[in-house]
Design a protein around this nucleic acid. Structure first.
Length: 314
DNA sequence: CGGGTTTGACCAGCGC
DNA sequence: GCGCTGGTCAAACCCG
């Protein structure tokens, strides 16, 4: 079952057990392109009125590693303790290109330390490795859809659309938060209908196999058709792949999402149980994104804060 | 020696 | 206007 829910600014998509939430902030795509996807997103009509300046994509994943590998090279430029979260937030910049504006924030959920929340901002202005490109596409697509659909900026839950139908792992949830400052799309890879085995990479693994990362890196073309995969890594990878593929390659996804958003916008905001127990998603944790977790209440999905990664694209 | 990480300080934005 | 918090910068340190 795929469930796409958009709450306020966040869209949550559930794909067979997996939840992907995408949060985009102000999609003003500057011109950067995450891989190739950015194209769509950026163009989307930028709503002058929209306060959003940047789109962010958050990915929540369960990982014990300090950071997830997404195919790009990052340099840490700062770390701060976020209020309300005992875990420090780390700031990274993409070093694959000199002027690459992409930044990402990595933070663990206060509630569930096993969940890693990664938030990406801006788009890469340089060629990306397959893995990274996939991520970029996903985020861009999400951002694009967000922009196109949510010119208004409200939260909403997307009813299950067909976006992810094609995805083997339709359990992923994507949450789109259109918080004024930054629309954020959160991909929640931690939750699923079935308690997915946490992704616990062997302690030996230095970097936690991010779904996206791993997926693209490992088997870009091979999506595991097994939704039931338990391997944390694979599972995640699969999910990511699925989501990415769906979003990136599925124009319908964007359209559907947009439609859903539009619908939502027009309709009263769904009851957003702000209780996500997991607020884990403090994506950014910044004050601005109140949307916070893109993971509002998923209809029927247990909210398991597992890991969170956030990408933001401008 | 070069690159990256760590850590403290500074600055800007927002809420009260 | 003040204080708080988040985000970034820059110097020092560490590792390969």
């Amino acid at each position: 079952m795929e469930v796409v829910s958009i709450k306020g600014n966040s869209h949550t998509v559930q794909i067979q057990g997996k939840r992907v939430s995408v949060i985009e902030d102000g999609i003003d795509q500057t011109s950067q392109s995450w891989g190739s996807m950015a194209d769509q997103s950026k163009n989307k009509e930028q709503v002058p009125e929209a306060p959003f300046k940047k789109a962010r994509v958050s990915v929540r994943a369960i990982s014990e590693a300090p950071m997830i590998c997404d195919g790009c090279q990052w340099r840490k430029y700062g770390q701060k303790m976020a209020k309300g979260n005992p875990c420090p937030r780390a700031y990274y910049r993409c070093t694959m290109a000199v002027g690459c504006p992409v930044r990402k924030q990595v933070q663990r959920c206060a509630e569930d330390k096993s969940i890693l929340i990664t938030t990406y901002e801006a788009n890469h202005n340089h060629p990306l490795p397959p893995a990274a490109a996939a991520m970029a596409k996903t985020t861009s697509a999400a951002a694009a859809m967000l922009l196109s659909g949510s010119s208004t900026s409200k939260d909403g839950v997307l009813p299950s659309s067909g976006y992810f139908h094609s995805l083997p792992y339709a359990s992923t949830m994507a949450t789109v938060s259109a918080s004024p400052p930054f629309p954020t799309i959160t991909l929640d890879l931690t939750q699923g209908p079935n308690p997915v085995p946490y992704i616990r990479p062997p302690s030996s693994a230095p970097t936690f196999p991010l779904p996206l990362h791993g997926y693209s890196m490992l088997a870009p073309n091979k999506l595991s058709p097994f939704p039931g995969m338990r391997m944390g890594q694979q599972r995640t990878s699969s999910v990511v792949e699925t989501v990415t593929a769906a979003i990136a390659s599925n124009p319908n996804f964007t359209a559907a999402l947009a439609a859903a958003i539009s619908t939502i916008m027009g309709a009263p905001p769904p009851p957003t149980p702000s209780n996500d127990g997991n607020s884990a998603t403090k994506n950014g944790g910044n004050k601005n994104n109140s949307s916070s977790n893109g993971v509002p209440g998923f209809p029927g999905s247990p909210q398991l804060p597992q890991s969170c990664t956030t990408f933001s694209t401008n």
